[in-house]
Design a protein around this nucleic acid. Structure first.
Lengths: 212, 212, 212, 212
DNA sequence: CATGAATGAGGCTTCATTCAT
DNA sequence: GATGAATGAAGCCTCATTCAT
């Protein structure tokens, strides 16, 4: 009966679904709730997505794409010294997610889907591919730092990138668990340690010299 | 068939439930499957746990307790220099979990439960309390390193501890996603960076001097 | 199969439910049986009634409403002397119920629900309200008899109305228990006693005079 | 383990069961509750009663026996004029039941069992037999009144007895439904009407004469 | 295309009953 | 005899999905 020829019907549903899934979790989300949130009929969902599972996966893909794009953009836009750029990247990632921490519940649902969804393989693959691309962004940052003589050239950029991404993930997780946890400040402190740990030895010497 | 109360019946069920939940996830796990895995009748589960949800939470608590205990034990048993001890702690944690990576699916289910379970508050609280205790173990290690002059005394032990734990978590997550990911080696590499980053400046100078 | 909302679907289910409940009793009735009797799917029942309990209560309300309406109608339609009208009311009530005595099992289920249903308060209230209204009909009949000088004016119309209704109830109960019990004739005999008992003294005198 | 060699174990269970059934109703009563109320083990119930249904029926039989005995006793013990005796019988029955109105819930469960219990036939038979015996007591009272010239000899003693018992039943039912209903006073008022209705015509004449 | 009434497979849970101790 | 831990049959209800309108 409703005839809102919304050309972005699919996107509308996807956004609504993301919110409901984030709030209730996959299992507790009812298709009817998504339909109501998207202001469409229940049957309409099935015009655009073949099943609840497929809808969930589509939400997941959209979020991964968004997250990757935003990180890639930030990665490219950064300027200044390596230290500055790493700090800014860290800050941006942490701040962006903290701003809508509720969406982090959704991330956990996705992780959980890699373990228990009938589609677990697809979730795993997509997740992993995303991580690989994120790692690439960070790795490039580090490689550039090394090329510029700002980072110890013996440093394993790949490994550090992987660990860094993990650290951001995990700090957000702790913020999720404990609203009192100051992820931003903890991240900054930790980045300082990392930066010192990755500094070129001579630079340390010079700094140490000056300090003496 | 035994009509005499098996004193370990509860533990048997708990173990079976952990396996099934790990394998299938909470939603896809059927109580009957747990019962079969534990070789008891379906009704027997309800003699020990009031609901599927309660059983899941009990599995969670048991795992948290186990994890905490094992880390605490390792934390106490360590000897040698700070660097050695941190490396050993890291290795132990990573190795222990890698050995039964399938249980990591369970951890993700638990994370997800903090977002979507009707009992989410209890999951969150228990999780957070566990993290706080784990952080304490790591923090103490760092503090001792500082007291012994092996770690830069200006280093924020609490923040580093939080980040480190997160890093281990996240490396295991990546190993879970990608069986080809070498979490152990990545952790070692990263620990080296961390150690350099936390080293006392003079030590760095001295080392740098010698290297020159 | 029809996907268009049948406007009578609710009534259809209600009727089917009344029959099954009457036949099997509340506890022994299976929702699936009601669904089959109503020729709808099991889930359809829950589109119209939130639970088995709610369905049962709806059947109860419908029966109370019907019973009240039919008695009220009879009460209004009666003509003739007080004696004639009381006899006709009694006859109508007894006959109507005897015609579908199987429904009396349902009444007993309802009584029982006033004692043991989780909703007992609502059952009690509805029952009592119905009895109050029925009493009103009978009381009016008596009051009119008194106004017309056909009934002893000192007679407590309220009390007699309450007792009369109870008597009809109880005679039907005995008919339910014993198919050989002649409720109609017993009621007529008893009504004659009642009528004599309520007659105005002078009338009795006159009659007695004539009889002498 | 418990070894309370209570020789009246069966009676203890029966009493406990009556209370629990009265309070919760048959369906909502759990065997474990009866066991706890009787302070015996759950299995012990089954030493004395073959099933929950059988226990319920035993409670029913016990109550019928009690009720009949008490009415029979009252019926025999009465003295004085017919009017006095009928009034006393009515008063005794009403008062006795009002004193433990909670047991009336049990009566309704029994009525309901005649409609829906798998054992409905036995419930019906026992109920009917009880009613027949009660009717006999009342009928005898009336017959004696007729023999003594206190009751109109054309009065159908059997029918009036049946109706009277029904009336008592039904007044108690209304008291059960409405705690504000004054069953005792209503019964007295109604008995007065009945007595007038059953009086021998001459007696009425005489009284009417005196009143003139 | 959009809708939402209808559907029924399937799961959690209850609880009467059994039987080893 | 007495017990209560163990059992599993059975039912209410949910909710993803379909399809007539």
């Amino acid at each position: 009966m409703a005839r809102k020829a919304d050309p972005n019907r699919r996107a509308t549903i996807l956004t609504a679904a993301a919110q409901v899934f984030a709030e209730k979790g996959y299992a507790a989300t009812r298709i009817i709730e998504v339909a109501q949130a998207a202001q469409v009929g229940k049957g309409t969902i099935y015009e655009y997505f073949s099943s609840k599972e497929a809808l969930f996966f589509a939400v997941f893909e959209a979020m991964m794409t968004d997250a990757e794009r935003s990180v890639a953009l930030v990665g490219q836009a950064l300027s200044g010294s390596f230290a500055t750029r790493l700090e800014m990247l860290s800050d941006t990632i942490i701040t962006t997610w903290l701003d809508e921490l509720s969406m982090y519940g959704l991330v956990m649902e996705f992780w959980s889907a890699t373990a228990s969804s009938p589609d677990r393989a697809r979730f795993k693959n997509t997740f992993q591919a995303g991580y690989v691309r994120l790692r690439k962004v960070v790795r490039r940052l580090i490689r550039k730092g090394q090329a510029d003589g700002e980072v110890d050239s013996t440093c394993d950029a790949e490994a550090v990138a992987a660990a860094l991404i993990g650290t951001w993930d995990a700090l957000l997780l702790q913020a999720w668990l404990d609203p009192g946890f100051d992820a931003k400040s903890t991240a900054r402190t930790f980045m300082a340690v990392i930066l010192r740990g990755m500094a070129v030895p001579s630079a340390v010497v010079r700094r140490a010299d000056r300090e003496v």
